[in-house]
């Protein structure tokens, strides 16, 4: 479903990711581990098409058998890629309902969409008042992550990258979030980016990848995550 070929990414003059080759498959959950500054978020943003991330000429990103390297972020999203942000931005004067209505255009009837969003909010136990407020303004860390999930659910993408969905979230919220993620996983590819094991208590990944200094240093199963939890990243040095 998603293939990264020789992915080398620069931000400004600094090369953050070096020649990454990975394949992600449908119906699978991937966990990407790495210490702070290892290039995890850069990987996520490069897939989503952040215009400030420059790809080397040899790099390629193949999504559903087509190169999306040259596509703008909105086109990538339209093809089914969704990035759940590590620190979702606040947008004054724009609420989640308006955002989704514009993103979906005529694909969904506004009333159906409204009901759908309200149902997700109930499921995730967030105050419906938040849905009508400017997006993420005055929202707690957990609420912001839940609002990201609502967007993911309404847009129904094929690939979802969760960039530290477990950061700044309390245990109860984490349980709800995990449950929500698992419930909607059918037919999708999930990439969970995290630097510790918390969310893996609730979600078992099919594959664990370790990234350090912009390179994939290790790939393995769930046990790899447990090992990192105990021994830290030093063993990859």
């Amino acid at each position: 479903m998603l293939k990264l070929k020789n992915l080398t990414v620069k931000i400004g003059k600094k090369t953050i990711l070096h020649n990454i080759n990975l394949t992600f498959q449908k119906n699978k959950i991937y966990a990407i581990f790495g210490p702070n500054g290892s290039g995890k978020s850069t990987l996520a943003h490069a897939i989503a098409g952040n215009p400030l991330h420059a790809l080397s000429p040899q790099s390629n990103i193949i999504f559903n058998n087509k190169s999306i390297k040259k596509l703008s972020p909105d086109k990538r999203a339209q093809q089914g890629i969704f990035l759940s942000w590590q620190a979702p931005l606040s947008l004054s004067g724009v609420n989640v309902f308006q955002l989704l209505q514009i993103a979906l255009g005529s694909k969904k009837n506004p009333l159906t969409l409204k009901k759908e969003i309200e149902a997700y909010a109930k499921e995730l136990n967030i105050n419906t008042e938040l849905l009508h407020r400017s997006l993420n303004e005055g929202a707690s860390g957990g609420e912001k992550k839940k609002l990201e999930l609502i967007q993911a659910a309404a847009l129904n993408p094929k690939l979802i990258i969760f960039d530290e969905i477990d950061t700044g979230v309390d245990v109860d919220a984490l349980k709800l979030i995990s449950k929500f993620i698992l419930k909607n996983k059918k037919g999708k590819t999930y990439i969970l980016i995290t630097h510790y094991n918390r969310i893996l208590k609730y979600i078992t990944p099919d594959k664990v990848l370790v990234i350090m200094n912009g390179k994939i240093v290790k790939q393995g199963g769930k046990t790899l995550a447990d090992k990192i939890e105990k021994q830290g990243y030093d063993m990859f040095k």
């Binding site: 098409g49 952040n50 969704f82 990035l83």
Partner: peptide
């Protein structure tokens, strides 16, 4: 980028942010 990564065109995203501002 946040808005475009949701599938919204760049010019539409600019319009949203400006309209949100006023």
């Amino acid at each position: 980028f946040y808005l475009t990564s949701r599938g919204i065109k760049k010019e539409e995203a600019e319009g949203m942010l400006v309209n949100g501002f006023i």
